[in-house]
Design a binder for these strands. Structure first.
Length: 625
RNA sequence: GCCUCGGUGGCUCAGCGGCUAGAGCAACGGCCUCGUAAGCCGUGGAUCGCGGGUUCAAAUCCCGCCCGAGGCUCCA
């Protein structure tokens, strides 16, 4: 509903002729009303009785402000191109009239369905002219809940699957030795609560100058400082490399799609309230919430033979957008704009899908390993329909056995999502919150919806099974998990750190005094030539202070250079990994090539990029703190 | 979205109706030229989140909004 609302000295109007057959009966004379609010009102498609009442309720405050209690409801179709039917419009307008009367407002209503002439005199004060758009606010939510209503009735059975393949209800499982699985299970089922505290990774991401909130954007859209950008970029390269090794074909697709596109609409309307909508001319676009759209549309248009299956297609979205409710956003854990690797596999039949699924399961474990996250750091959840379980018991058991720890099971009596089987690796953080990292699912619905087919041996078109996998989960969330894990280590008295291949500075060189600036710079040059990220501290501070700051930057190797090193040709290397129990890192004596080959060995197989910051610390701005 | 808590120099925080709004860190200037987690002195820097209201007087009390966190909910 749209209302042009005018605080007027008076209005005069006269019905001239009927515009539609269903026009209201009325006296064809001149009407005049003094000292009132004129509501030029346009009823739009989908407006309900609730909208009518809300329009009047909202108006009440305005009437008090301008100290008036007289209104004229004037039907005015010209405010929208999405009109309700005349019958509906009249019904809504009458509802406004009667609702206003019950609130004690003096109401006039101009006849509906007439071509009218009018003249009006409007007051000049700042609040005199207003335009309002009224919706129920819950409108979209209602569509969602209706779509999901049937689904929410379907019962989930919560179980734990042990390594021998047996399943017990969660209440009967002995969680001794599986504390994190217990926390995760409780989080999934009952949502237990934690203390009030800023998530540790939020402080760390800012102190380390990686990422920060951007107040000028929508909440949940972050700014990335050089060090954070480097880390994110390295992870992006790393995950992409993993997927290409597995056989993924990397593509790139648009971030926005036509809201009215036929194959997108049905998928989309399941969750209509979570989109960013973008207007361009008179069209509306939504920002993608996953890579599915672009890839499915691309595969839809492709000629695919059974010989080419499984067909793996991959994109790393920068970004995917989900307009999560504001209360759900939390640091890097839950964002509105995030980076998501997404690899789909089209498989000919269930047998092929299962084999492929297993292969990808291993890829996921392997990918997280690169972040130094192992099965000790996350919990497996598997979700499936009862039917699927009955027919594929051994397969599901093999997943749990391959994982090596008991897993949380959610089993449904009936299928209500588009998938029959899904798993995630869930990270449990310092606040006992769980969030999914890697995930994969077997989708039996979307091939048909998107018209994705392949040609089988007999020359017939068939719908493939589609697997949806994110081997790492959102990149931001990987960083969240690493920072949260580092914080846990710190609580245990260890030095928190990032994996060496992700450390923005791998080697920090600290000259003992200005006399050794030249030597320090030379060391850095050599390290850079070997593709080691090195920098040196040329600021006018004491050496002790520089060591301290390097430690607070989580620099893995700190090399102090003075007369001794210049004379001996060796390096004094303070090794962060050797720090224990809040004691400073041990200093090792090493040759340059030993240090380089140690770093090369530890970072082998991982991507490398230069640090996008000056190598002299004095030339770096402080982005935070 | 709802409920609760918070927002004070770049950062962390103190002040919670009444002197010119403070401290530490950081920045800047100078001294110091240093051997593995904070050297010393000085200078500049604040529309107290934004808007409105109450009051002789508002960072402080009230209302609305914005941002963050926690809870509820949600997580394709």
């Amino acid at each position: 509903m749209r209302i042009l609302q005018l605080h007027s000295n008076h209005i005069e109007y006269r019905p001239v002729e009927k515009e539609i057959p269903s026009a209201e009966e009325c006296e064809q004379r001149k009407y005049r009303v003094e000292e009132l609010i004129v509501l030029f009102t346009c009823v739009e498609k989908g407006d309900t009785v609730e909208v009518a009442q809300k329009a009047i309720n909202d108006l009440k405050g305005y009437l008090d402000t301008v100290k008036s209690n007289r209104i004229l409801i004037y039907p005015y179709a010209h405010l929208s191109s999405n009109l309700a039917s005349p019958d509906d419009a009249l019904r809504i307008l009458k509802e406004m009239e009667s609702h206003a009367k019950t609130l004690g407002i003096e109401v006039f209503r101009a006849p509906f369905g007439w071509c009218k002439e009018f003249s009006i005199s409007i007051k000049g004060h700042p609040l005199a002219e207003q335009f309002r758009t009224i919706t129920t606010g819950e409108k979209e939510g209602e569509i969602v809940s209706k779509a999901l209503e049937a689904e929410s009735k379907i019962k989930s059975h919560w179980l734990i699957m042990k390594l021998d393949g047996s399943m017990v209800p969660v209440e009967e499982f002995d969680f001794n030795g599986h504390e994190k699985l217990k926390i995760f299970t409780e989080y999934e089922i009952s949502k237990v609560r934690a203390v009030q505290q800023v998530p540790p990774h939020v402080n760390l991401m800012r102190k380390l100058e990686l990422v920060d909130y951007e107040l000028a954007s929508d909440p949940g859209n972050f700014r990335w400082y050089p060090k954070g950008r480097l880390i994110k970029s390295l992870i992006e390269l790393y995950v992409t490399q993993k997927v290409i090794d597995y056989g993924g074909m990397e593509v790139e697709t648009p971030i926005m799609y036509d809201l009215e596109h036929p194959s997108l609409a049905s998928y989309l309307h399941r969750f209509p309230a979570r989109q960013y909508i973008l207007k361009s001319d008179d069209k509306e676009f939504f920002l993608r919430f996953s890579a599915c759209f672009g890839q499915f549309l691309m595969v839809h248009d492709a000629q695919i033979s059974y010989r080419q299956l499984p067909l793996r297609i991959y994109e790393l979205t920068r970004y995917s957008f989900r307009r999560e409710k504001s209360g759900e956003l939390a640091g890097l854990r839950r964002l509105r704009g995030f980076t998501m690797p997404d690899v789909h596999a089209m498989c000919s039949d269930l047998e092929q899908a299962k084999q492929e699924f297993l292969k990808r399961f291993k890829m996921c474990v392997d990918t997280l390993q690169g972040f130094e996250l192992t099965s000790n750091d996350y919990e497996l959840a598997i979700r499936f329909t009862k039917d699927f379980y009955e027919q594929n018991k051994d397969f599901i058991i093999s997943l749990v056995q391959s994982f090596g720890k008991p897993a949380l099971i959610e089993m449904w009596d009936e299928r209500f999502f588009y998938f029959v089987l899904k798993y995630e690796f869930n990270f449990v953080d310092n606040l006992n919150k769980a969030s999914a990292l890697s995930t994969d699912q077997i989708d039996i619905e979307n091939a048909e919806r998107y018209g994705i087919t392949y040609v089988d041996e007999k020359g017939e078109k068939k719908y493939p099974y589609i697997l949806h996998c994110s081997p790492s989960g959102a990149i931001e969330r990987d960083i969240y998990a690493m920072l949260e894990k580092a914080y846990m280590e710190q609580q245990k008295g260890k030095a928190p750190s990032l994996p060496l291949w992700l450390s923005p500075t791998q080697v920090r060189v600290i000259p003992v005094s200005e006399q050794f600036f030249g030597a320090a710079e030379k060391l850095v040059t050599v390290l850079l030539e070997h593709e080691v990220r090195a920098d040196w501290d040329d600021r006018p501070l004491t050496m002790q202070k520089k060591v301290r700051e390097a430690e607070m930057d989580w620099v893995p190797y700190i090399v102090v250079i003075g007369q001794k090193e210049v004379d001996s040709g060796t390096l004094a290397v303070r090794d962060r990994r050797l720090a224990e129990d809040r004691k400073p890192g041990k200093v090792r004596t090493m040759k340059m090539d030993e240090l380089v080959s140690e770093i090369k060995e530890i970072t082998r197989g991982k991507p490398f990029q230069k640090l996008p910051l000056p190598t002299e610390l004095s030339k770096r701005p402080k982005f935070y703190g």
